[in-house]
Design a protein around this nucleic acid. Sequence first.
DNA 1: ACTACGATCTACT
DNA 2: GTAGATCGTAGTG
Length: 202
Amino acid sequence: MDYNPWPDDFFTRPTLDIAPALLGALLVRETPAGRLTARIVETEAYLQHDPACHGVRARPDGELYHRQTGRNTTMFGPPGRAYVYFTYGNHFMLNVVTGEEGMPEAVLIRALEPLAGAATMALNRGLPISPALTNGPGKLTRALAIDRALDGHDLTQPPLQLFLTTPLPEHRIVRTPRIGISKAVECPWRFYEHGNAWVSRK
DNA sequence: ACTACGATCTACT
DNA sequence: GTAGATCGTAGTG
């Protein structure tokens, strides 16, 4: 198996197009306990002129600028890689890097629908099989055993791969403001699959 | 060195 | 619905 899981021009598209286009895409995670497969059902876009983006800072006068740090370096690299970071003392977050190299943009994966390996995900979470396994960004990384070791990982390669599927029709995509941030709270850059039981919040 | 806070989760009222 | 856990990161002195 040695093919590109996405078209060559996929990551040249605007991040605000990629975020909804990733709905329905598959994540395949190889672990010692087996292969875990899940479908992306909720995403958020973080952009280069976005105060909520990790690569963006604001001067006292409000002017935005880019700042590369130890944590966010992967965001400034080539698209198609995983940006994984640690927060709140407990949780890892998984993003797909987008945008051209040198620009800090990414799509946060906020919820997954398990397709295979749900029993192993339940073991990783210490919970029975239910939407609680993967209906949040911190929950899904624990279910798939994703941590900082995968920061910068090329998502065309095992042990964590992304595969596109046919795009969802527009009427099945809901667009809302993002969750859990304190800046740019109004920007409607969160996307989820309408009616999907594994979405974090309606 | 010191401080503040976070793209969250869980438990509890 | 609300509060506490928990600690790495980044900014400041």
